[in-house]
Amino acid sequence: MADDYLLQTKDITKKYKDVLAVDHVNINLKKGEIYGLIGRNGAGKTTLLKMLAGLANPTEGDYTIFGLSGRKTASLRDRVGVLIEHPGLFGNMSVYDNLKVKALALGVNDDDYLRELIDYVGLTSAGKRPVKKFSLGMKQRLGIALTLVSHPDLLLLDEPINGLDPQGIIEIRELIEKLAKEQKITIIISSHILEELSKIATRYGVINEGRLIAEFSHEELLDSCVQLIELRPDDVSKASTVLEGMGIKDYKAMDKRTIHIFERTDECGKIVLEMAKHNVEIQGVEIKHRSLEEYYIELTDRDQIDRRGEKK
């Protein structure tokens, strides 16, 4: 149902001279989701987010946000918070003054809320210190606070953890989780680190050279990362016969005691049961996962191969 979606893009495309930065991307975002946009540097994440934020115009296609499209989206300024790469801050001004500038621009006249917001993002101790003296993590937290000034329903966060140290990454991650949980804000967050996104996102989109090459839920991601079942039977040749009998062809006997099964990895229990029925003693079984990064690389590599095929 189209009405269920808070944001929908339809073949949204951006071309800069000869470079196709975003290529016919279709995204459907439901309320309450944390959508992780993954792609390497220059994949088109920032351009896509800039278009969704109304900071760049699509060359082709369009998008609907809160049911509005085109010029009408300008009325949604207070419902969408934007942090593209680095927050635009006035370096000589304090946290409060930076927030006040944004609040005035969006017609928000609630100083108490601004103070609450400073507390919420953990910057109360910064006091009147000019923000140019802040660490990168503090600046990013202030950037997120800026996006929250108008009580938005949707946040577009472009690489908010880029360049942060591990402690800074944890702080920003916790803050984003808190926002989604406590304030029920829908979030699109981009990053080139799938591992990090996997800790907060509920759905993912992989973008490569401007194209959205895959979309999956968190559960699907975990399933996809199950790579093989490592079976340790007492008799490998007998176990192989059982596997053949089950119709499993994609397996490999690694040594006299180990078999790697690459298909039907979700039927681990069934395989063990079948072995028991045929008197094959299983001394060990383990589901092995590939890393999220490996999965991501596999997706992008597959896309490269597909593109080469298309060119031919």
């Binding site: 989206t73 949604l76 969408v80 635009g88 944004k102 577009l156």
Partner: peptide, 21 residues
């Protein structure tokens, strides 16, 4: 420059839809 060329402008969404900012 401070308010137009600096990054502050990117904090305000939908500028391509309405050029009032």
């Amino acid at each position: 420059g401070q308010s137009q060329v600096s990054g502050f402008t990117e904090n305000i969404p939908f500028q391509m839809k309405d050029r009032k900012f």
